[in-house]
Every structure is written in C-alpha cells, then in structure tokens.
C-alpha cells in the first residue's frame, strides 16, 4: 500500500514538474522531436531500400530449358534434385505451349511467325527462384549438370548490378540508422540531464528532509519518461502523415514499376512504436543517470 502511494505520488509529481518547468521541458521535447524525426526518416529510407532489394531479387530467376527428348522420368528426377538444392526457393513448370501463348500475346510479328510454324519449336522449362542471389551462378551450373537440361539462363547483367548497388545502399543506410540512434540517445539523454542538472538543489533538499533515494529518483525517472514520450509524439505524427502523403504522391512507385514503396500500414505503425519506445527509454535512462550523479549512494 505504502509503495503504491509512493509510486502514485511520483507520477503526480513528475507531471507537475513537467508543467512547472515549462521552458526546460519544451527544450527537451523539441530536441528529442528533431532528432527522432531524423531517425524516423533514416529508418523509412533503410526499410524501403531493403524492400526494393528484396523485390528485385525476387524478380531474378533461372530459366531451365529441357531437351526435346526429355522423358517424364527425367523431369521428375530434375524436380527432386531441385527440391534438394539448398539455394532453391521455389520452382514452377512452364510448358512450351504456355511459352507459345505468352509469345503470341506479346507481339504481332511473333504471333504470325508462330502461326506459320506447325510444330511448336519452343522447349519445356522450369522457372527457378533462388534464396540467395549471390549464388545464382553456382546453382545454375549445378542444374546444368543434368544432361537432359539444354540450358539454365539467368539475367546476367543489369538486374544483378542493380541488386548489388542496392545492397551497398542498404548497408550504408543501416549504418546511418544505427549511428543516428546512438547520437539521438546521447542528445536526448543529455538534454534531460541538463534539465535535471538545473534542479540539483531540489535533489539536495529532498535528501536533507529525509527522502529515501528511491522516492527522490522515481519522480525524475517518470519525468524523463514523460519528456521522452512527448518528444516522440511529434515524430510519430510526422512519420504517419508524412509517409502516407509521400506514398499517395508517388502512387506507391518511385521512378518506375521496379521501385515499389512499402505500404504505409502497418509499416508506419511499427516505426512509430519504435520512436515512442526509444523516446521513453532514452528519457528514463537520461534522468536516471542525472539523478544518480547528485544522489550520494
């Protein structure tokens, strides 16, 4: 009962103190907001780059053409060997008739040429998706070992280069996010430390009138939590509204159909939760550190 009363008073006092030290509170909130907005932008960027890379990778497939004389048995053999290959994510069978239909639909010239030929000159095939694009070459070579396989092609060139470029960007943005989070943690906790530094007399007086360490510390920790939370609210609004606006503006795609943005929901909700969580935890930690300095323990 006593502990609950002390806790309840700590929460009440922390709210009072946020309002009574209005200018300092505002400074801490604004500082947290600005830095968290930066974190939010970096996170959105990083996640989108990751998503784009993933999409591109998904586009990249190995097309395995089979010899004309391939038997049903051999086809089953290939299926089971594909299933056993570690790097193979999925595969689908595409018959020569499907290819023909697709080609006919794609252009008039091809249509008339194919019409002219009585027999379908195309080959049956498997379209293979891999787990790791880096090992695309090895996988295709392994498939080629089957002598009834005519060829195993993959898009050597453009797409791969694009993917490796995006992979570099992805790594850079992750490093930027981590660096920003560290800087933010330092900035917010320092600002909150400063607001408490200006009130070290209070801590001294609390000690003199016989307040225990825990009852001195609790209101300050809650105050840090409140400041951090309020500092996180503006970036949350910025993230949700800003990203939805951006998404609508581009209709979900940047430059081309290839670069697709992540859908705003639940993506922005997750980012918001991370921002709020960061604000609260860093705020609490900052004030814990500050009070510790002025409490003789």
């Amino acid at each position: 009962m006593k502990a609950i009363r002390i806790l309840g008073r700590a929460i009440r006092d922390s709210f009072k103190s946020v309002f009574r030290n209005f200018s300092l509170s505002t400074a801490a909130i604004v500082c947290s907001s600005i830095t968290l907005i930066l974190v939010s932008v970096a996170m959105i960027l990083s996640y989108n780059v990751e998503n784009i890379t993933k999409n591109l990778e998904h586009e990249l497939t190995i097309v395995v053409y089979l010899n004309k004389e391939t038997t049903e048995e051999q086809m089953n053999e290939l299926k089971s060997s594909l299933e056993n290959m570690e790097n193979v994510d999925s595969y689908e069978y595409k018959s020569k008739d499907e290819w023909r239909l697709e080609m006919k639909n794609s252009s008039e010239t091809l249509n008339s040429t194919l019409e002219y030929l009585e027999e379908n000159p195309l080959l049956d095939s498997f379209i293979v998706r891999v787990k790791d694009v880096e090992h695309l070459k090895e996988t295709s070579q392994e498939i080629l070992k089957n002598d009834f396989v005519s060829s195993a092609d993959y898009g050597e060139g453009m797409t791969e280069n694009l993917i490796s470029a995006f992979k570099v960007i992805e790594k850079v943005t992750i490093i930027v996010v981590i660096a920003l989070i560290l800087v933010t943690a330092f900035l917010i906790s320092n600002t909150i430390k400063l607001t408490i530094f200006s009130r070290r007399n209070e801590i001294e007086i609390m000690r003199l009138v016989g307040a225990s360490n825990i009852s001195i510390r609790l209101p300050f920790i809650f105050e840090g939590l409140i400041l951090g939370f309020l500092g996180g609210l503006i970036p949350v609004i910025f993230t949700i509204y800003g990203y939805v606006l951006l998404y609508d503006h581009f209709n979900g795609y940047v430059f081309s159909q290839l670069i697709e943005l992540v859908e705003p929901f639940n993506f922005t909700i997750y980012i918001s939760m991370i921002l709020l969580g960061m604000g609260c935890i860093i705020g609490m930690f900052g004030s814990y550190r500050a009070v510790r300095k002025y409490l003789k323990i």
Binding site: K2, A3, R5, I6, R9, K16, S17, R20, N21, N201, E202, E204, I205, M206, L208, V209, G210, A211, S212, S215, I216
Partner: peptide, 27 residues
Amino acid sequence: IVFQDFKLLPKLTVYENVAFALESLGM
C-alpha cells in the same frame, strides 16, 4: 533541520513544501 538559506523547493507551494517530507515516507 532549519537552514540559514531556508532551502525550500521553489516550484512547490508552501503546503507542498511542508507535506513533501511526509509524502516521501508514504504516509
């Protein structure tokens, strides 16, 4: 303890300043 420089908490009212010591006891 009574101090030469009073040592009152500036952001608390008179009542709160006096009540403070008792509150931290969990009364």
